[in-house]
Amino acid sequence: MEPVGILTKLILAVLVGGVIGAEREYRSKLAGFRTLIMICLGSTLFTIFSRFIASPTEVSRVASNVVVGIGFVGAGVIFKGDNNRVNGITTAATIWVTAALGVGIGAGYYVISFLGCAFVLLTHIGFPYLEGLIDKANRGRTYKIVFPYPEFDEQSFDKIFKEYHLKAKEGYQSKKGAWIVGEWLVYGRQKNHDRFIQHILQESRIEQFDF
């Protein structure tokens, strides 16, 4: 392999990783500009080195080990946030696909790698709008309500959810002094959530309402 060809691959790896990383950096994600450049460049280097140090039958094995190794990096950006929500999965997937693009560049599949880069950008830039429409149609929200018993009970709130065309998929209640603390994960249209929130805010017997 000629030095010029190797240099070209390294430059392309920096460009592809940089473009994807710049978009992630703009959105203040954990894996940003420099991180994704290093991931794409590293994957390209591993693929190039495999052409020199491995036999023809072992080249694919080196690439497969890149996939396994990058999984540890991706796992490092996944964490549990507020309300027990898991965050960082999209960033981890971006790390994974950026490594795949680096392998493609190292193997000389430039067109496929650039097309893959374009689709990654389309997913990150264009799809959030579509995701927002889906979220409005069926949005999940967690409600924590502290209410007096027996004036209210679990069935009371189930009826109110149904009244506003909302569906509670998970819930639990616990007793705290003279009050019952209830928490529900509720799905439905955004406008129905808004109507439900206004209903609860106007209920003077509710001690606490987190939404």
Rank of each mutant, 00 (worst) to 15 (best):
V19N: 15
S64T: 11
K80S: 02
V67K: 02
F46Q: 05
R51P: 03
R61D: 12
G42Y: 10
E23C: 14
S55P: 04
V19I: 09
V77N: 00
R27M: 04
Y26S: 07
R85F: 11
G32A: 05
V19S: 11
N87I: 15
S55V: 15
F79T: 04
R27P: 00
F72R: 15
I53G: 10
A92S: 12
G18T: 06
A22C: 04
K80A: 02
M38G: 07
T47W: 06
S28M: 13
L45E: 08
V66R: 01
T91S: 06
F33W: 05
S50E: 09
A54P: 08
E58S: 09
F52A: 14
L45K: 04
T90M: 02
L45Y: 04
G88K: 00
R24H: 08
K29L: 13
A22H: 09
C40H: 06
I37W: 09
K80L: 05
N84H: 15
S64P: 03
S50N: 10
Y26N: 12
I70Y: 05
V66Y: 14
G76F: 09
F72V: 02
Y26H: 13
T35K: 13
G88F: 01
I70Q: 03
S28I: 03
E25G: 00
I70K: 11
L36C: 13
G42L: 11
I48Q: 04
G32P: 02
G88E: 01
C40Y: 04
A92I: 00
F72D: 06
F46E: 08
S50H: 02
M38S: 12
F46W: 03
G76C: 15
G21R: 04
I70D: 06
G88L: 01
S60M: 10
F46C: 08
A92C: 03
F72L: 07
G71N: 04
A75R: 05
E58V: 00
F79K: 01
G18Y: 14
S50K: 12
C40M: 11
F79L: 03
R51Q: 07
I53V: 11
R34S: 15
P56I: 14
N83V: 11
I37H: 07
S28L: 05
M38F: 06
S28G: 08
I20L: 02
V73Q: 02
V86H: 01
L30F: 07
S28F: 14
G88Q: 01
G32L: 00
M38V: 06
A92F: 00
F49K: 08
N87A: 05
G69L: 08
V19W: 11
G32V: 03
S55A: 11
P56D: 15
R61E: 10
A54V: 07
I78E: 01
V16W: 13
G18Q: 07
E25R: 03
I37E: 11
K80F: 09
S64L: 06
I37Y: 06
G76T: 09
A22M: 15
S28Q: 05
T47L: 11
N84M: 08
A93I: 00
V62F: 07
T90A: 01
V66A: 14
T47P: 14
F72W: 14
V59Y: 15
A63S: 13
I53Q: 13
A75I: 11
K29V: 10
A31R: 08
A22P: 00
L45M: 03
T35I: 10
S60E: 12
V59G: 13
I39Q: 01
